[in-house]
Computed example of a mutant assay.
Amino acid sequence: MTRHPVDDPEICEEFGYGLGDPGGILVLRYRSAVALAFGESRQDFLHQLYWSPDGPLATLHGPSVRFVGAGEGFWARRAVSHEVRAGDRQTVYRICLREQPPALDGLRAGPVPVDDEAARLITLIARRGCDEATALTARRRILAGIGAPDGSGPHAAGTGGGTGFALAVARSLSHDPADPTRLDEWAVRLRVSVKTLQRDFVREFGMPYTRWRTLLRLRAARVLLDFHPVGTVAHEVGYASPSAFIHAFRKEYGHTPGHR
């Protein structure tokens, strides 16, 4: 299967408001039946945020691949080289700005939180019929909803009365699905019981930790399979062997990774 060129007009729609003005915004919406790959090394004047509502993104800025999970986007400051990849049957929004969100001052590239309202407004302005005044008002709220990386990791989570433990673990694992940390080890780091952490996973995600991690790894794998051999992908997402990965993939999707 070949990756889809991101400039194909059949999968890319453009929505521009106030273009030419520092306060403008351009949103590119990509939809494809196969994988998407974005690569930027140009010297331009546009900051960029990549965000997907329905799957992880694999990002490359520097020597290693890092994943961006739910509730996050990938920020790239203007003129910073980067690559972003999305899986098959995934929608990706690429938000181009001349102004940098206040919370991201000094950040060259990396995963950043995107709050629910900002996410909603991104989809709102990437629709036909949205007027410019509405879009430019939404732009201000979108910038406010793109937050700086908290850098706290799972160690500092869960201070809000027994909730948030699963979300902290999920965010950490979303960046590195191959992380082999067991549930009991996460519980020790968070200073909670295994039972409490497992219960929080079921409450937040409707499934236990091991099931959630398996789905995360397989979704991350789908992003990479169009670009790397099965053995490489298996290692990248945390499987000890290609055969273990193929077994898990077939069990979940009903076919092997090579027949998607």
Rank of each mutant, 00 (worst) to 15 (best):
A135V: 04
L136V: 03
L136R: 11
T137W: 05
T137N: 09
R140M: 03
R140N: 02
R141S: 08
R141F: 01
I142G: 03
L143T: 00
A144E: 09
A144D: 03
I146M: 07
G147A: 07
A148M: 01
D150Q: 04
D150I: 00
D150N: 02
G151T: 00
P154M: 02
H155L: 07
H155I: 03
A157D: 03
G158M: 00
G160H: 03
G160W: 01
G161L: 04
G161K: 03
G161T: 01
G162S: 00
T163G: 02
G164D: 05
G164P: 03
F165K: 02
F165C: 08
A166F: 05
A166G: 00
L167F: 02
R171Y: 02
R171W: 00
R171E: 11
S172Q: 15
L173R: 02
L173C: 09
L173P: 07
S174I: 00
H175F: 05
H175K: 08
P177I: 03
A178Q: 07
A178F: 04
D179Y: 11
D179M: 15
P180E: 13
T181S: 14
T181M: 12
R182G: 10
R182M: 08
D184Q: 08
D184S: 14
A187I: 08
A187V: 12
V188K: 14
R189W: 09
R189T: 14
V192M: 02
S193I: 05
S193D: 13
S193T: 15
S193R: 08
S193G: 15
K195C: 06
T196P: 00
T196D: 06
L197M: 10
Q198P: 01
Q198H: 10
R199F: 04
D200N: 14
V202W: 07
V202P: 02
R203K: 06
R203V: 04
E204I: 01
E204D: 12
E204S: 12
F205T: 00
M207S: 08
M207L: 09
Y209K: 05
W212M: 03
W212P: 04
L215T: 03
L216I: 03
R217Y: 05
L218Y: 04
R219E: 15
R222E: 11
R222P: 06
V223D: 10
V223S: 12
L224G: 11
L225S: 11
L225W: 06
L225D: 11
L225I: 13
D226K: 01
F227W: 14
H228N: 14
H228D: 15
P229N: 14
P229Y: 11
P229F: 12
V230I: 15
T232S: 12
E236L: 15
G238A: 07
Y239E: 06
Y239L: 02
A240G: 14
S241M: 11
S241F: 12
S243L: 14
A244K: 12
F245Q: 01
H247Q: 12
H247F: 06
A248N: 08
A248Q: 12
R250D: 10
K251Y: 06
E252G: 08
P257A: 08
P257W: 06
G258K: 10
H259M: 01
R260M: 06
